[in-house]
Design a protein around this nucleic acid. Structure first.
Lengths: 123, 123, 123, 123
DNA sequence: GTGGTCTAGACCACC
DNA sequence: GTGGTCTAGACCACG
């Protein structure tokens, strides 16, 4: 069962996208593997304090992308092969790092300052 | 006059929030200082390719927060004192860096790998 | 034993309502009479290719309405008196025919064209 | 502007489908023609006493089918060519008449009785 | 219990 | 004002 212990809700990004991203990141990191069981909509929505439909939307998009297999009345399972994982890794990393670099530059930080900050806030 | 050269539109976040954030980041970084002049609603909307109402919404929120002073028929000016700048710095930097660090950890990266990536994607 | 030979599943209406309606129509028409035996939940669900719960829901509503008498461990029987039959006839016939007439008029058909079509598609 | 004077809400069928059907029927009948203006979501939802999203769903499906052209900030217009109208006519009539014939047969009516009823309830 | 759909209300971007 | 999207809650069919 995939855990959502690390999940922290942010503002400014749709909740369903945050859930979707969380799962993709976990898959890219290897924390979520092929065959892993997803929490049910009800369970996860209760855990996150959102509407079941919001979770449903994230799951549906992942299913459309082929990362989840759902069957009515049964648990939803992750479907991950090596190619997919590699693709996720590549996509996610590039996007995140670029966004991060852009933010830092907008705040007028030098690369050294940015690295120092990242180091400071790491844990 | 505040420039929007670095501004890059992202999706998943409302545009007016991105504009608001861009200005706050600039203020936190010192790139935008007290008394700086803001582009007119019309000019900025044309520059960014968005609707004037969207710019108006961002300006209105900044004004409500006291970061902008608008006078009818006159330019809008930034209102920034030391306390405000310090607050922005703290809020923006801490929040963003923490979010980034969390993203990287979720993707299974070590601190060293994250720093290396940031370095690679800096420009 | 009530047969479901004519039953054809439609979509856009909940299945349990279709089952309920089928039985009511039969009762209104006289094809189903007082004391008739209903197929067991399991048998009917197999015949229609739906979940037993769905059949159960239809039976439960009929029972709540007093049209069915169920006894634990025994067959379910239809309970139909003259008053009930007359009521069903009136409700079902009037509603359905009015809805159909409205549909045809919305499609710009004259009464004569509608009658001709009904004749053509009757079997 | 397309009017919804004849629209009468029924139960058992999703509202958005009823709206969709109403428009298709009007197009098939020639009451709605190419270039006709649709009521806005807000206006129609207020008129019908439903949520704007319910109207939106019907409009969206019609747009996906190519029967409506929508542009943000502008009115939605009907897009109807001869081929489309002919197709609608054919599809709608066959479906409706078949459903109607089935209902009547389930109620144990003969064709003559059905025709008589339709005649009686026509207006 | 599970996943899927329909209706609802609020918000966003645009004209 | 317009259309489009996100979140919410209830209901349906199924195991």
């Amino acid at each position: 069962m995939i855990g959502f212990e690390d999940f922290i809700m942010a503002d400014g990004m749709p909740i369903y996208l945050q859930i979707l991203l969380y799962i993709k990141r976990g898959a890219a990191a290897g924390a979520i593997v092929d065959g892993d069981e997803l929490p049910s909509r009800r369970m996860l929505s209760a855990l996150l304090g959102v509407n079941p439909n919001t979770v449903q939307k994230a799951y549906k998009m992942l299913e459309d992308e082929g990362l989840i297999a759902s069957h009515a009345g049964a648990k939803s399972l992750m479907v991950l092969d090596e190619t997919t994982i590699a693709r996720l890794k590549k996509e996610l990393l590039a996007d995140e790092v670029r966004a991060m670099a852009r933010s830092f530059r907008q705040m007028g930080l030098s690369k050294e300052e940015a690295v120092a900050l990242l180091d400071a806030y790491w844990e």
